[in-house]
Simulated scan of single mutants.
Amino acid sequence: MMFGSTQPETGDNKWRSQLDRFVKANQQELAALSWALWLENGDSQGTIGIDLQPTPHFVYCPQEAVEKLNENVENRLQEIIGIIAHHQPEVEVLMIGIGKGEVKLIQFAPEPTPPECFAQLGKDVEELLDLLEQRMSGEIVV
């Protein structure tokens, strides 16, 4: 799992630790959403993102936009682009957290797998989006 940060929690990076806690507490639901969106669109829309501004909500981050951002930051996101290229949606969740002009990679392999989480929860994409966005609004304050 790629959670946590060695930086102290300050106003500038508080969103990162709040996002970490949210992801950790909602792994099954995020895995179900990730799989449901994969079934719906594959990777045609890009990578799922969690945009924290103005209020937390889900977006798609098109591949072209991630590549352009990488160019703008002197290839400092090259590792993220490689992880996106090798993403295995049937076993792992991959999302990009977006907040305060920064990005944070969210990647984890849930137990059970994303397809099993989706089957067990029995909710459709809209229900999962509504549930998770409501929870985010209560837990992540930027």
Rank of each mutant, 00 (worst) to 15 (best):
F3A: 09
G4F: 02
G4Y: 00
S5E: 11
S5D: 14
T6Y: 11
Q7L: 15
Q7C: 10
P8S: 13
P8T: 15
T10D: 12
D12I: 12
W15Q: 03
W15F: 08
W15Y: 04
R16P: 08
S17D: 05
Q18H: 05
Q18E: 15
Q18M: 14
Q18R: 07
L19P: 10
L19N: 03
D20K: 01
D20W: 02
F22T: 05
V23G: 04
V23D: 03
K24W: 12
K24Q: 13
N26K: 03
N26R: 04
Q28F: 08
Q28C: 09
E29H: 11
L30A: 00
A31N: 03
A31V: 02
A31Y: 02
A31S: 10
A32L: 04
A32K: 02
S34T: 15
W35N: 12
W35G: 11
L37V: 06
L39T: 13
L39E: 15
L39C: 15
N41D: 13
N41W: 06
G42A: 10
Q45S: 06
Q45V: 00
G46N: 03
G46D: 01
I48C: 04
G49N: 01
G49A: 12
I50C: 10
D51M: 05
L52V: 00
P54S: 09
T55Y: 06
T55M: 06
F58H: 01
F58A: 04
F58M: 02
F58L: 00
Y60L: 04
C61S: 09
P62V: 08
P62S: 07
P62K: 01
P62T: 09
Q63D: 10
Q63G: 05
E64V: 07
A65V: 12
V66C: 11
E67H: 10
K68F: 11
K68R: 12
K68N: 10
V73P: 01
E74G: 05
E74L: 08
N75H: 11
L77S: 04
I80S: 08
I80C: 11
I80L: 15
I81K: 07
I84G: 03
A85I: 07
A85K: 13
A85Y: 02
A85S: 14
H86I: 09
H86Y: 08
H87P: 00
H87Y: 08
Q88M: 06
P89Y: 01
P89C: 08
E90K: 10
V91G: 06
V91L: 08
V93P: 05
M95Q: 11
G97N: 03
G97I: 04
I98V: 14
I98T: 10
K100Y: 04
K100H: 12
G101Y: 00
G101N: 08
V103Q: 06
V103M: 09
K104I: 02
L105M: 11
L105G: 03
L105Q: 07
L105W: 01
L105I: 10
F108T: 09
A109F: 05
A109L: 03
